[in-house]
Simulated assay, not measured.
Amino acid sequence: MEQFLKDLFADQSYNEKSFFLIAGPCVVESEELVMEVAEKVSGICKNLGIPYIFKASYRKANRTSASSFTGIGDDNALALVKKTGETFRLPVTSDIHAHDEAAPAAEYIDVLQIPAFLCRQTDLLVAAAETGKVVNVKKGQFLSGPAMQFAVEKIRKAGNNKIILTERGTTFGYQDLVVDYRNIPWMQAHGVPVVMDCTHSLQQPNQTSGITGGNPQLIATIAKAAIASGAEGLFIETHPNPAIAKSDGANMLRLDLLEPLLKQLLKIKEVV
């Protein structure tokens, strides 16, 4: 495991032969929700020896419809993400969307996540790098794994080597994505750990209803294949009741299904 990841997980006991997990609800809906999810997932991961980063977006800047929920307010949401991490002694992550968000967000979170659509934005990548925080860049749906070398180079040239790349599917027609598992070793060739986003890779975007669809029944399939392909980490958005989630409910994993899935994945990891 990379040294910066060992430092990130310093407060957690884990098996270095495991993978790490980034998980949480898509967006901060309420304090009750983030605390419930973090308590449940952190307990599971502690028992299984899986390093865990709590994730919740403080604001959803990329929504299909203008009427979609975007957040409870940046300051309130960031404060709740930070409080969640402090309560359960977890590193936390959230998206940033513009270069001037990097420094303020870095006061609250440990890992700055760069959304897939913004992975080529030089000023955003440089600003994130300059905070000194871990930077997790999601591969654009329109890019190949090898092309992500340029995002990595921008961050490194800004003086930051704490980089994660996340595979989240590739555009397949107008309303679907497909996962090409070649991207895992291709992106690892850039000298960084690679995460598989098991939920967003199952999105069905650009629906005429204005609400993104998904195939959550295939989350386990995506996750198993990713671990078998050598991914260092998994990204899984989870919610106690995805049907009432305010964002991405169509492709989130129901919270009570997470533990049995992680147990299966650990068995696959042992074999690999």
Rank of each mutant, 00 (worst) to 15 (best):
F172Y: 15
S30R: 03
I109E: 00
T93N: 00
H239L: 02
G73F: 04
A243G: 02
A147Y: 14
A103M: 11
G132H: 11
I96Q: 05
G214C: 06
L33C: 03
P260K: 03
N161H: 10
T221E: 13
V134I: 07
A245D: 10
C26P: 07
T122R: 03
P193E: 12
C198A: 15
Y14W: 13
S18C: 09
E86N: 11
K55M: 10
R89A: 14
D100R: 04
K157D: 15
A79W: 01
N251H: 14
Q188P: 12
A223E: 05
N215M: 12
D176R: 01
G140F: 10
C119A: 07
E31S: 10
K138Q: 13
S94F: 01
I22E: 12
W186T: 14
V137G: 00
F4E: 08
I22H: 08
I22W: 05
L257S: 13
P216Y: 04
E232S: 14
D197F: 04
R89M: 10
E29L: 01
A151T: 02
K138P: 10
S65H: 07
C26M: 04
K157Q: 15
P25C: 08
K40N: 13
N47G: 15
G24C: 04
A127R: 06
G71R: 09
G159T: 06
Q188A: 14
V41K: 03
A128L: 08
G24H: 11
V135W: 04
D176V: 02
P205I: 07
W186A: 15
L202E: 13
L258Y: 13
V152T: 06
A151I: 04
E153I: 00
A23P: 08
A220K: 10
G85P: 01
S144D: 08
N161E: 15
A38C: 01
E31T: 07
A231E: 09
T131Q: 02
W186E: 15
G43P: 05
P51F: 03
V137P: 06
V179D: 03
A103D: 14
E36M: 06
L258Q: 07
H99I: 07
R156G: 08
V37A: 03
V81C: 00
L202W: 04
P242V: 10
V34H: 01
Q264H: 06
P51G: 08
L202H: 05
N206S: 09
E16M: 01
L265S: 06
I211G: 01
A56Y: 09
G169A: 11
V195M: 03
N47I: 02
I22R: 00
N15R: 12
I44M: 13
K40L: 11
